[in-house]
């Protein structure tokens, strides 16, 4: 049982504030992904949970125990590092056994656990090799096996797949998901890759500028971004945003079209590129670039002078200069407050 509670944790490096008072609770056995661009504070938060960094203020609780003053080894965690940190002077076997040896576990149990996790990660034939003789993907497997062998309450992963090539990343992603789902651990996983986040997470915490902007399940984060940033960061291509002029109570005019919207003083219209379809009446989009991608066609256009993208059926091939009328799916339209950047419901 390991619930992780982060209470008002903040971290400054000199005059730079990496984290502004973060609050987050991660449920037992949950797979939580910290997602954000580089410099958003996600790795700092992970390192604070690991004990590799001390928070300037705030508390970290793991499994009902306050741990922010404890060294990493007393926190019941294991970690997979971005550059694997597989010890070059030890064989794969001894690397996986490292944490168990530190605990002075008896040899039979060490061998049992190393063999089991090596099998799980499909590296049982590499146990006698040194890390210098392994490929990046194999090192990655060793790093994961080393963490799993600890049978920890919590596994922390710092961009574990970012150094692998695209194909291998896809393969490892699926494998990690399977292995971790069976391991009964709470996982915190840091990444800047939104697809990775969407595919792995039970919940995603989207971070920006040292704050958690939204923490919710992947579909919720995608469908109902809590802030303009989330919409613009998640999704490829990202959400479209258009200026809206008030047109009566709860009515907004967007590029000549009138939509029902929130009853606020100002609002910004937002729609996902795939939630558009050509219609008689719709947002007038002047096509700039057409990219036939196979399953669908990506159209880059401009609507009332603002950049706009649409993902359309692949049999539709407009030419640059054409004007398309694109109607948004009504219940997929979102509204944001231009001043606070947060969602209007």
């Amino acid at each position: 049982m390991a619930v992780i509670e982060i209470k008002q944790v903040a971290k400054s490096f000199g005059s730079f504030t990496a984290l502004h008072s973060v609050d987050l609770t991660i449920a037992d056995q949950e797979f939580m992904v910290l997602l954000g661009a580089s410099g958003c504070g996600k790795t700092t938060l992970l390192r604070i949970i690991a004990g590799l960094e001390t928070p300037t203020i705030g508390e970290v609780w793991i499994g009902g125990r306050r741990v922010d003053h404890l060294p990493p080894r007393e926190r019941g965690i294991a970690m997979v590092f971005q550059n694997y940190a597989v010890f070059p002077h030890l064989t794969v076997f001894e690397n996986i056994a490292f944490g168990l040896r530190m605990k002075k576990m008896d040899q039979a149990e060490v061998t049992r656990r190393v063999n089991r996790t090596a099998e799980l990660m499909h590296i049982e034939q590499l146990l006698k090799r040194y890390s210098g003789e392994l490929s990046g993907g194999q090192r990655q497997r060793v790093a994961v096996a080393r963490a799993l062998a600890m049978e920890p309450d919590v596994i922390l992963m710092d961009e574990p797949l970012s150094n692998l090539d695209a194909l291998l990343r896809l393969e490892m992603r699926a494998e990690l998901k399977g292995v971790l789902a069976e391991s009964n651990t709470t996982t915190i996983y840091v990444t800047h890759d939104q697809v990775e986040a969407m595919s792995l997470a039970d919940r995603i915490s989207v971070m920006n500028g040292g704050r958690i902007v939204q923490a919710a399940n992947p579909v919720e984060v995608y469908r109902n971004p809590a802030a303009r940033f989330v919409g613009s960061f998640i999704g490829n291509p990202p959400m479209n945003f258009l200026k809206a002029e008030p047109a009566g109570a709860g009515k907004w005019q967007v590029a000549g079209q009138v939509f029902d919207g929130p009853a606020s003083a100002a609002a910004e219209f937002a729609i996902r590129p795939e939630d558009l379809h050509p219609a008689e009446a719709g947002l007038p989009a002047e096509v700039r670039v057409v990219e036939p991608l196979g399953p669908h066609t990506l159209v880059t256009a401009s609507v009332a002078g603002q950049p706009f993208r649409a993902v359309l059926e692949s049999n539709l091939l407009p030419a640059p200069g054409d004007v398309l009328h694109l109607a948004p799916v009504p219940d997929r339209i979102r509204w944001f407050d231009p001043a606070t950047q947060s969602a209007l419901r």
């Binding site: 590799l52 080894r73 971005q82 550059n83 940190a85 010890f87 490292f98 530190m102 922390l156």
Partner: peptide, 15 residues
Amino acid sequence: IPKEYGEAADVFGAT
């Protein structure tokens, strides 16, 4: 010696 090795040792329980 890259810093990560020391950190890995810390995390995996080394005094």
